[in-house]
């Protein structure tokens, strides 16, 4: 044991780790929001509820069908992503020509419905979801104890984030996507089915949220309000980073998680408000956001 700035290293690194974990979820969720916003010009308020659905789906699959964590990691994003596609086909598609405000209102309404339904059936208390066997325990790094599952979450979300970045910024499909964001009419003229691409983009964004939900289930308890708790913070993260850049969303997410963790060590009272405070400062100094392109 040693001390840094009068803080025991265990506590410091412990909070740093927790910050990185939170940062992983901020990054995954703001990434999904940015992808959806780019294509649909809608702020997906249902994102938090879809994250919660991911966690619940993993819990229910384990409880009722005995499907374990690893299978859930694949199945749940597909299931929840499909529900997203249904939502896009049924509702969001009709809002294309309207003020983006209506997209926000509609997805807000959907979030209320989903949260209400889950609260109705599962109550407000958290349900436990065990850490998968292969990731039980942890290792001692000398300066801190690192639980295996947490290391996995950080590593895996980094992989997912960069895979998404690569897919959008470096592949042919991604270039269609970016082109359709800039000018959908022109891209359609080239024979690309833009409405289908919009649908799949929304499904993908929702699947990312659900994946984050599965990963979060063993760390935080599974509860109906877990989504609305985190989504408002993610909105602040998105305002700070600006939604123009995929890499920006990833970097901002992780950085703010770490900042939040450090605040918990040095100034615990402010730990849950620090991200909002940073948002205010960023808005006053650089209104477009750190990685943003205009309003």
């Amino acid at each position: 044991m040693f001390q840094i700035f009068g803080i025991p290293s265990q506590a410091l690194f412990g909070q740093l780790l927790l910050g990185l974990i939170n940062g992983s979820f901020y990054a995954l969720l703001s990434l999904g929001l940015a992808v959806i916003f780019g294509m649909l010009n809608i702020i997906n308020f249902t994102h938090g509820a879809q994250y919660m659905m991911g966690a619940f789906a993993a819990y229910l699959l384990l409880q009722h069908l005995g499907i374990n964590y690893w299978a859930a990691l694949v199945i749940v994003p597909i299931i929840v992503g499909l529900t997203g596609i249904i939502v896009e086909r049924l509702f969001l598609q009709q809002l294309q020509k309207l003020d983006p405000l209506y997209g926000l209102l509609l997805t807000f309404g959907l979030a209320l419905i989903i949260e209400g339904l889950f609260r109705n059936y599962y109550g407000s208390s958290g349900l436990p979801y065990g850490v998968p066997d292969a990731l039980q325990g942890g290792r001692n790094l000398g300066f801190m104890f690192l639980p295996n599952y947490r290391a996995w979450v950080i590593g895996f979300s980094l992989v997912i984030c960069f895979a998404t970045w690569f897919a959008i910024e470096r592949t042919r499909l991604g270039s269609y996507l970016r082109a359709a964001t800039e000018n959908p009419t022109l891209v359609r003229a080239f024979g690309i089915n833009v409405p289908r691409m919009v649908m799949l983009t929304y499904g993908f964004g929702v699947a990312l949220a659900a994946l984050a939900g599965v990963m979060a289930a063993p760390i935080y308890n599974v509860s109906p309000q877990m989504g609305s708790d985190i989504i408002i913070v993610v909105f602040a993260v998105v305002v700070i980073g600006g939604m123009g850049s995929i890499m920006g969303a990833i970097i901002t997410g992780f950085t703010l998680g770490i900042v939040e963790g450090l605040t918990k060590v040095f100034f615990p009272e402010a730990s849950n408000t620090v991200i909002f405070a940073i948002m205010i400062v960023v808005l006053l100094v650089r209104p477009a956001g750190l990685f943003g392109r205009g309003a």
Partner: peptide, 28 residues
């Protein structure tokens, strides 16, 4: 003064975030 620095959808998110911040303050 803080919120009008962005428009449209961002304005909505900023006002929501500011309100949430003061909710957390009220909690403590």
């Amino acid at each position: 003064i803080v919120a009008i620095r962005r428009q449209g959808i961002y304005f909505a998110m900023i006002t929501l975030a500011l309100a949430q911040m003061m909710y957390l303050v009220a909690l403590r």
